[in-house]
Design a protein around this nucleic acid. Structure first.
Lengths: 210, 210
DNA sequence: TGTTGTGAAGTATTTCACAGCC
DNA sequence: GGCTGTGAAATACTTCACAACA
């Protein structure tokens, strides 16, 4: 167990969980066929994905929804809450801070940092924007486990290193660069320009083939 | 040529282009080896990726930076500008609207829509937030080719259908649902909750294996 | 009976390795 | 001599198909 799980599988697990969110009542069961229909995949794929983590379906019946939901949460590591530090109080930072789905999933933003003196001291909900001068200190004090870097590329590498130094366990990176951090600290990149480029590529391809 | 190109290749092409952005002067050349070092991949992968679109390197020398940059832009479909409609004037919409990298890459936001009466009429830069009542009409009038859906899941399917109806060529979708649109209209999904879940999964795995 | 869990088969993607060319 | 472009080999991922079993 716990061999290397491909990123594609992880994304599907997240889909499965979301599919179950709007599921009727509780106590019901769902088959791999139904689950596949709600995602964008096949029944065999669903079963294979789940089988990597044990076998918690009942043959002839399917998966019990409550249990499946709980197992998926556990697998994805969201059967607990995460203490998050937000680095960068710009537009993207604000959007994330306000994103209701985050709190709902147990991601608690416990500190906000920005280098802009004009922003330091600003109140955001119950938080106050802090100076990067106290970065490591605050991360340690508040036991921050996960940081979101919503800052320009030029500052991202430095803040990533300082975050790792302060004992952070993972980084969600919006800056369009590859962070160089020790392999024990996972980095998840979100690159909005890349997404748009993938889209314009797909459109261009469609036009060429038309 | 133009067989099916995997998504992974497209993402790498985007990386290669970004790597070249900060390249010294012009007139230089770069080898697949150097390009690979800047991305997160191998020299063979770089050559294979590029070879899908023709052969524009020089054996013994490498790739001419200016030419490669131009070819990559062309391949990705950003050697032109795109007329973009933004649907949803919330935090995420605002963050995207203000994202400097977008204009820089030729994505021009030419219209903004929001269903909230309080927001309709608000001025955003040179744009004014419009009512969805005039959605199709405005998209057609302004020749919008690409829409960004930054609205809740409950409204996304409807707006996607209306956008397709109005002749839009592609959709960047921030709503956490699978849009059901004709295959000729590519959809690129960005799911922030999924990214965070992928991160917490990676951390949990790292801890399990430790 | 109906549906899971899983080896085996089939595809897709990546890496290797080297001929071909600058 | 050095580096690309590309078939062939290796690896990774998905789908098939069926035994196991509630």
């Amino acid at each position: 167990m716990t061999r290397k799980i491909p990123q594609s599988t992880v994304r599907r697990l997240s889909h499965y969980l979301r599919s179950l969110e709007g599921f009727e009542g509780s106590g019901g069961t769902i088959s791999s066929e139904e689950l596949a229909a709600r995602g964008q995949t096949t029944a065999a794929q669903v079963r294979k994905d789940l089988s990597h983590f044990g076998s918690f379906g009942k043959r002839g019946l399917g998966y019990q929804v409550d249990e499946l939901r709980a197992r998926l949460r556990q697998i994805l590591g969201i059967d607990r809450s995460w203490r998050v530090g937000l680095v960068g109080a710009g537009r993207i930072g604000l959007a994330l801070f306000d994103y209701p789905a985050f709190q709902a999933r147990g991601y608690d933003c416990v500190a906000i940092f920005d280098a802009d003196p004009a922003k330091i001291g600003e109140a955001w909900g119950e938080q106050t924007v802090r100076s990067p001068d106290v970065f490591e200190e605050v991360l340690r004090e508040l036991d921050v486990e996960l940081v979101i870097l919503a800052i320009p590329a030029s500052a991202a590498q430095e803040m990533a290193e300082r975050a790792v130094e302060a004992g952070v366990k993972g980084i969600l990176n919006f800056a369009p660069i590859r962070l160089n951090v020790p392999p024990k600290v996972p980095v998840q990149d979100v690159n909005l320009v890349m997404e748009l480029e993938a889209l314009s590529f797909a459109i261009s391809q469609a036009e060429r083939n038309a």
